[in-house]
Design a protein around this nucleic acid. Structure first.
Lengths: 233, 233
DNA sequence: ACCAGTAATATGTATAGACATAATAAGTCA
DNA sequence: TGACTTATTATGTCTATACATATTACTGGT
């Protein structure tokens, strides 16, 4: 039973996707069941199932037991942005990466950061500020708070040679994280370090990481306005 | 068949993830093969395979034939942001959505937009500008160019009652899209409509969509600086 | 009309077995 | 030593079959 026509879950997935994006099957419409598709493509149901599950994961179709599979009404597509290490991102652009520590010391955590981490204000955390350069031009300012209760080793970590980001990746596991992006005005210190004027628009990424509900670190990553976050889909 | 211990690909996946995030298996390390894991968990290799493939898709492990599966060295996690329809996003926040058309007419496309779409400048495109409000407060300004060659019906579409975003979702299929986000200064018109001052920082999303290499539309979505794009991970 | 209980059904998951494929390791010859 | 060739191996994919589970559809009773 040697399939003359090669048929993998990929080709099935792509063909289904084609029918959806060319409106052979319209939004909201019910598409044939797995059995029927399996027969049409001369494949096993498991193979069709895999193709459909991938489409469901990417949000193209919705599946419910007994009810069947239907094309999603409003394609709430999701964009995926990779959040690489700064060094990696810069070197992949073919540029030279440079790191510089600005300051690193224990400090009492201010209210807004404490709130983000869900701890009480005034606790002593590690506060590390550092710059990342691409071809000697300012690329990112990293303003980070580290919970010393969760990561005591951070107090004596060598942040003058290794960025807190990389150090944490190697030394502090995390299980959950929250990202957000926003536009903000450059604060005074940020403006100086990024070679902007105070109040200039900057693209800010904020990340909070936890290890099973225990807050690890809060970081504000500030980019000059030329910076873009890009995603293909 | 008797599995006393229930064991699905989910529990296997979660257990593997636990071992990785608690550094039982450290970054860069090779983990046992599928056969071995299958035996350990008392499952079929296909089941272990499914668990491992999910971990690979989320970027936790890297797999290569013959070489085996290893924990990724630098967890280049990717953040997924859902890009819903504006109306949906606002209503999910429990706010009231309102739409207002600002202007809609054929225009010669300026150079920068033409370049983004990969067409020659000066061609006549549809230029639509509109506002989206949440509880009567400015939420997003939509500044869109539509390729009339690809979507001729856009010339006479009722953009005064339906936002170009929604109209396109229902009337123009696309196969590929590019998103990018950046921080910018509010332009004059944007500042007025968003009730900001000119030059205030705004979070801008740009989207370009294609149907098999044929450019469909370019849109600039401008949000006031209070806006955040959030992603859990 | 209404509700509860039951049957029917599409998808979800697991399995053993088989072959495909990519990449490394080992072996061979110049 | 180095350049090919071949064997080995872990993952990739497919199949047929079976049972699980969530929902819908039906059915009878009040």
């Amino acid at each position: 039973m040697k399939r003359v026509l090669r048929s993998s879950y990929r080709t099935i997935r792509d063909e289904l996707l084609r029918r959806i994006s060319t409106r052979v099957w319209k939004p909201g419409e019910l598409i044939p069941g797995e059995e029927a598709l399996a027969e049409e493509f001369g494949a096993a149901r498991a193979t069709v199932n895999r193709a459909l599950q991938e489409l469901a994961r990417t949000g193209v179709v919705e599946r419910r037991r007994k009810a069947g599979t239907r094309v999603v009404l409003h394609p709430v597509r999701e964009a995926r942005f990779v959040i690489p290490l700064v060094r990696q991102a810069i070197e992949e652009e073919g540029k030279t990466y440079r790191y510089r520590l600005v300051a690193s010391r224990g400090e009492r955590v201010p209210g807004d950061v404490a709130a983000s981490l869900g701890i009480s204000a005034g606790l002593p955390l590690m506060h590390v500020r550092a710059m990342h350069y691409a071809d000697d031009r300012p690329y990112q300012f990293e303003d980070r708070w580290i919970n010393l209760e969760a990561v005591p080793a951070a107090r004596t970590a060598p942040f003058d040679v290794q960025s807190p980001n990389e150090w944490l990746v190697e030394n502090a596991p995390f299980s959950r994280a929250t990202f957000s992006f926003l536009a903000d005005r450059a604060r005074e210190e940020e403006a100086v370090l990024l070679e902007l004027r105070e109040g200039d628009p900057v693209l800010v990424g904020e990340r909070i990481t936890f290890l099973v509900d225990r807050p690890i670190t809060f970081v504000r990553l500030v980019h000059p306005p030329s910076h873009r976050m890009v995603s293909e889909l």
